[in-house]
Computed example of a mutant assay.
Amino acid sequence: MCRLLLLSHSELSRSFYDTAELIMGRPDPQVSYIVLPYGQDMDIYQKAIEETVASAETDGILILTDLFGGSPFMITSRVYGKYHTTVPMEIVCGMNLSMVIETVAALKQSVSLGRLKEIALEAGRKGIVDFSERLQSQYQKKGGTPYEH
């Protein structure tokens, strides 16, 4: 079964994990997070990520990071360079709560690493909604404007 690792600046990854737990119940043990507090020694941070990646072995690991180009991503890209030939891994940047919830749920279905990445990307995109646009679209289907009702 694939693993899921949440990485972010500060406590955001822990907050995503805790929120997923609040919504869905405790995630399976293959879901984990590593926080990056201010002033963290980057070698220690990288070692923690490497240990989690190495434990994924042949099943693979999907790593969600908060920002493309941020420290969690940069360290993860180093880990990728070191382990990608021995441990199947994928990295998705721009983590949001929709993405986390859907990937945690998908892990329970024992999906492949490639499919898990697709689910994360799709859920992340679908989780971003322009409410005004959505409202306008709904009322146009019914005829009229949202402000006429």
Rank of each mutant, 00 (worst) to 15 (best):
M1R: 06
M1K: 10
R3G: 12
R3C: 06
R3W: 02
L5G: 01
S10F: 12
L12C: 03
L12S: 01
R14K: 12
S15T: 14
S15W: 03
S15L: 13
F16K: 06
A20H: 01
A20L: 02
A20E: 09
E21F: 01
E21D: 11
M24I: 13
G25I: 11
R26S: 13
R26H: 13
P27M: 05
P29I: 03
Q30F: 12
Q30C: 12
S32Y: 00
Y33L: 08
I34K: 05
V35S: 12
V35Y: 00
V35F: 00
V35H: 01
L36K: 00
L36V: 09
L36T: 07
L36R: 01
Y38I: 12
Q40K: 10
Q40C: 02
Q40Y: 12
Q40T: 15
D41P: 01
D41V: 01
D41S: 12
D43T: 13
D43K: 12
Q46H: 11
A48H: 10
E50S: 15
E50V: 08
E50D: 15
T52L: 13
T52I: 13
V53G: 01
A54V: 11
A54K: 05
S55P: 05
A56L: 14
A56F: 09
A56Q: 09
A56Y: 10
E57D: 14
T58L: 06
D59L: 06
L64A: 12
T65V: 15
T65P: 04
F68G: 07
F68K: 09
G70C: 08
G70V: 03
S71L: 08
F73P: 00
F73L: 07
M74Y: 00
I75R: 04
Y80W: 09
Y80R: 01
G81C: 03
Y83S: 00
H84T: 02
H84K: 09
T85K: 15
T85L: 10
T86H: 09
V87S: 04
V87M: 03
V87W: 06
V87P: 00
P88D: 05
P88H: 04
M89Q: 02
M89W: 06
E90G: 05
E90H: 02
I91L: 10
V92S: 04
C93G: 02
G94A: 09
N96V: 08
L97R: 08
V100M: 03
I101L: 05
I101T: 04
V104L: 10
V104G: 02
V104M: 12
A105M: 10
A106T: 13
A106N: 07
A106I: 00
V111C: 01
V111L: 11
L113T: 05
G114L: 15
G114I: 08
L116R: 08
L116A: 09
L116V: 11
K117E: 14
K117Y: 00
E118F: 03
E118Q: 15
E118R: 10
L121A: 05
E122P: 00
E122K: 11
A123R: 04
A123G: 04
R125E: 14
R125N: 10
K126A: 11
I128T: 10
I128W: 04
I128K: 10
I128Y: 08
I128V: 15
I128N: 05
D130G: 00
F131D: 08
S132I: 11
E133S: 14
R134I: 08
S137K: 14
Q138N: 10
K142F: 07
G143Y: 02
G143F: 12
G143L: 06
G143T: 05
Y147G: 04
E148M: 09
E148V: 13
